[in-house]
Each structure stands twice: as structure tokens, then as C-alpha cells.
């Protein structure tokens, strides 16, 4: 397999993720989109790892470096999901909704000239 196919796949996933972040209204869906972005990065890690293995002779540690990064990213995503969901619950308790477009407490108040 050529490297570029994986990069295209990663790019597509990344773009879908960005689009999701920009367009989705609810916090849950935005979290999903972030997961997509993270996973596109994971694909890149793994793909470049095997690509570099085939072209250069690395040490034992180099051989698994991309995989290790991918694992770290998966763990990060899991942690993020946990924290994010906790935030959402807290958000829902306070505002009774999780549509982020409707929550703008930090907005510049009009009368505050």
C-alpha cells in the first residue's frame, strides 16, 4: 500500500472532524468530531511508522514509536471523553441543555460600553 492513501484517509477524517466541530450544535457531537480528528492523527502515526520502517533501518525502539504514540492518543481520547462528559453533565445541570450555541455567558454584554 502506498503511504499517500493513508494520508488521504487521514485528511478526509480530519476534514470531517473539523467540519463536525464547526457545524454541530450539541456538545456530544462536537466531542465525536474531536474524536475523529484524534483518530485521523492516529492513522498518520501508524502509517508513517510502517513507512519509515520499510525505507530505513531503525532501532528496536524506533520500530514501535508510532504505535506507542497511537496508544497514547487513544488513552488521551478516552480521558478527554471522560472529562468532557463530566463537563457536559455539569453543563446540563446548570443550563438544562447542552446546545453550546445557546450558552454564551462569556459574551461581551451590550450595555458594558
Amino acid at each position: 500500500m502506498e503511504l499517500e492513501w493513508f494520508v488521504y484517509l487521514s485528511l478526509i477524517l480530519f476534514s470531517i472532524g473539523i467540519l463536525g466541530v464547526l457545524t454541530q450544535k450539541t456538545a456530544i457531537r462536537i466531542l465525536f468530531s474531536v474524536e475523529l480528528i484524534l483518530n485521523s492523527a492516529n492513522i498518520n502515526f501508524v502509517a508513517f511508522n510502517s513507512y519509515l520502517q520499510s525505507t530505513t533501518s531503525g532501532t528496536v525502539i524506533d520500530q514501535y514509536m508510532g504505535w506507542v504514540f497511537a496508544m497514547v492518543v487513544i488513552a488521551l481520547a478516552a480521558a478527554e471523553a471522560a472529562v468532557g462528559l463530566a463537563i457536559f453533565i455539569s453543563l446540563y445541570r446548570n443550563f438544562r441543555e447542552i446546545v453550546v450555541a445557546n450558552i454564551y455567558e462569556l459574551a461581551e454584554s451590550e450595555e458594558d460600553e
Binding site: 450555541a101 450558552i103 462569556l106 461581551e108
Partner: peptide, 14 residues
């Protein structure tokens, strides 16, 4: 521009 909507911030960031 500081409207407090997270999505808008993300748009500007992108």
C-alpha cells in the same frame, strides 16, 4: 466578536 459562543471561537481559530 466576543459573543461567548464556543463554535464561533472555533471558527475563528480554524
Amino acid at each position: 466578536l466576543q459573543d461567548g459562543i464556543v463554535g464561533d471561537y472555533a471558527k475563528f481559530m480554524i
